[in-house]
Structures are given as structure tokens and as C-alpha cells.
């Protein structure tokens, strides 16, 4: 069967859930090979990739690769494409991986599709566009298809692969070293699931009122094992860190359940959450546009409704 390259997303040596999703998807299209780029590789990581179907694991784990933004990763993939002639390259539809995909497309003169929520027979991608309002079936017609797939689009299923490790030596070109990461301040990795991967997301907006009041949102999130999100109004006000912003210029989330508290539902916010399976809204304004997409809504003060809900959930557990 034809080889499908899957670029591994990893943080501090841990393989991210989206990679397991991509491996699961790649198994329906061919034989998956995982590509590990950057430091942090271990036998444990290799085992995890193998458990999810990776037949091969290509490893290029020098520090160079992560110190120079995306260019070295594009060079690594271009090298593997020319050596292995895979049928396709799958990456996660994250900001960074989409850029890698873009540079790779130019290097190998291939088409690239972003924001796929599925890939079927014939490598036909189901792209979610216009903020989730429209789905497009598209194909790459030239070169080796490069497809960026959204997190949370494919349920993870384990199925063992050989996971044979193959070291790849890359010489990062001078051009690829031109942009350098001079400082990297790690964000605290909290106990909550990551926003784009979470099954449940609880988001707060301007209606939350202050940074302190975000504790109300966090407590509800914790009672449900959910991630916390925020509208741009809340992140711009400095009430919650920017990396939790949901929407057009923030993260796209596609959870089973999205709870919006004190969020009006502006088009740019909807662009990041309207593909959630179930949407719940708490807003004191019955005319708020968020109610147009909510499966269930409560018109009321979130400072009453949300704590009552949190308490009730704790009781029922």
C-alpha cells in the first residue's frame, strides 16, 4: 500500500492527540509513516506512534529544527517526499503546520489543501470554509497532495503498526536558518485539556466582567473536565490569556459540547466554534445572536446561572 507521511505534533516529548487522529485517518488512505521533527524523541513516543498504526517512524531530532521557525521542517519533508515518493503528506491544521505545508508545496511543486475535516477515497478532502458555514470537496491535482487536517475531526482508534525507526539526517540550509527563535517562554501547561483537542469547551466573554470572574468559568470547566476558552473581547481586555481566544483570529474548536457564557456570538467568534456538536449559551440578552445557534440556552445572568450549574453537576456526579 502507498505510504502516507504524517508530520508528528509533539510538546515536550509527548505526541499530541491530533497526530493519533491523523495516523488513524492515514490508515484508511494507505500505510502511515510518522515524521518526527525536532528534539524530544523517545522510545515511549515511538511506541505511541506504533500503537496507532505507524509502520515507520522517520526521526530528525536535532535542535536546529525547532530553533529556526518552520523552514527546516519544510526541508525535512521535502527530502522525505523525494526519497520515499509517498502518496500524500498529512499535517495538522495548526498555524505552524499550515505554514510548513505552504513552504513544502512550493518546494515540491504540489497542491495544498488546508482546514480539512475529513479525507476520503482518492484523497478527496472535505474542507470547512467560511468559518464553518460551508463544506467543499476538493482534491490536489498536481504533485504529492499535502493536506492540513483539523484537530478533533477523526476519532482516534489504535491499531498496531511496526513503528520501525529510521533516522533521517537533514542539513538545514543557511536560508532556512535566516529566521531564528531568540527566546521561547513556555506557557504553564495547566491541568485542563488543550483547547483544540478538548471534548468540552466552556468559554467566557465580555459578560464575565473581569479577570477574577473568570474563576466562575474555570470552575464550570473543571466540573466537566473541559477546556476554557474566551472571546476576543475578553482576551483583549486582558481577562484571560490570548492563547485561549476562540474565533477567526484565535483557535478553531470543534468539541462535542461548547458552552458560551456572556458571549454575544459575533460572526468572527462563530467562525471558531460553530462546528461544535452541541452548543449551549448563557446570556442575559434574549436577542443575542448566539441563541440562533444554541441547542439550549438560558436567558439570564451568568453569575447566577453558571455557579448553580457547577454545583448541580458536582451533586449529580
Amino acid at each position: 500500500m502507498s505510504e502516507i507521511l504524517v508530520l508528528v505534533e509533539h510538546v515536550e516529548g509527548q505526541v499530541k492527540k491530533v497526530t493519533l487522529e491523523l495516523l488513524t485517518l492515514a490508515r484508511t488512505l494507505g500505510t502511515p509513516s510518522a515524521v518526527w521533527a525536532g528534539p524530544g524523541y523517545s522510545a515511549e513516543a515511538q511506541a505511541k506512534l506504533a500503537e496507532h498504526g505507524a509502520e515507520k517512524v522517520y526521526v530528525a531530532d536535532s535542535a536546529d529544527i525547532s530553533d529556526y521557525v518552520v523552514a527546516p521542517k519544510a526541508e525535512l519533508l521535502a527530502q522525505l517526499v523525494s526519497e520515499k515518493s509517498p502518496a500524500a503528506v498529512l499535517v495538522a491544521a495548526t498555524a505552524e503546520a499550515k505554514e510548513i505545508a505552504g513552504r513544502l508545496a512550493i518546494k515540491i511543486d504540489s497542491g495544498v489543501l488546508t482546514d480539512a475535516v475529513g479525507v476520503g477515497d482518492g484523497l478527496v478532502a472535505d474542507q470547512s470554509i467560511f468559518g464553518g458555514g460551508v463544506n467543499v470537496h476538493s482534491r490536489v491535482t498536481k504533485g504529492t497532495p499535502i493536506i492540513a487536517v483539523r484537530p478533533n475531526a477523526t476519532p482516534v482508534e489504535a491499531a498496531a503498526g511496526a513503528g520501525t525507526e529510521e533516522r533521517v539526517s537533514v542539513t538545514v540550509s543557511d536560508a532556512a536558518r535566516a529566521a531564528r527563535v531568540v527566546e521561547r517562554v513556555k506557557e504553564e501547561k495547566g491541568a485542563r485539556p488543550e483547547l483544540t483537542e478538548a471534548a468540552i469547551v466552556v468559554s467566557g466573554g465580555r459578560g464575565v466582567g473581569s479577570a477574577e470572574n473568570f474563576a466562575v468559568i474555570e470552575r464550570l470547566a473543571d466540573s466537566l473536565g473541559a477546556a476554557v476558552g474566551a472571546s476576543r473581547a475578553a482576551t483583549d481586555a486582558g481577562w484571560y490569556p490570548h492563547q485561549f481566544q476562540v474565533g477567526q483570529t484565535g483557535k478553531t474548536v470543534s468539541p462535542q459540547l461548547y458552552i458560551a457564557a456572556g458571549i454575544s456570538g459575533a460572526i468572527q467568534h462563530r467562525a471558531g466554534m460553530q462546528t461544535a456538536k452541541t452548543i449551549v449559551a448563557v446570556n442575559k440578552d434574549p436577542e443575542a445572536p448566539i441563541f440562533e445557534l444554541a441547542d439550549f440556552g438560558v436567558v439570564g445572568d451568568l453569575h447566577q446561572v453558571v455557579p448553580q450549574l457547577t454545583d448541580e453537576i458536582s451533586k449529580r456526579k
Binding site: 440556552g297 448541580e312 453537576i313
Partner: peptide, 24 residues
């Protein structure tokens, strides 16, 4: 190209003191 079926508004209840319970 297919437009995703627009989401339809579900139930929205006014909070009369038990909104959190109904949500639960």
C-alpha cells in the same frame, strides 16, 4: 460545494431562579 445546514435555534429558557438546574 455544500452549505452546511444552518444551525437551528433550540430552546432558550428565561432564568427564573432555576436556569442552572434546567441546564444541568
Amino acid at each position: 460545494i455544500t452549505a452546511r445546514p444552518p444551525r437551528t435555534a433550540g430552546t432558550a429558557l428565561p432564568d427564573e431562579g432555576e436556569g442552572g438546574l434546567r441546564l444541568a
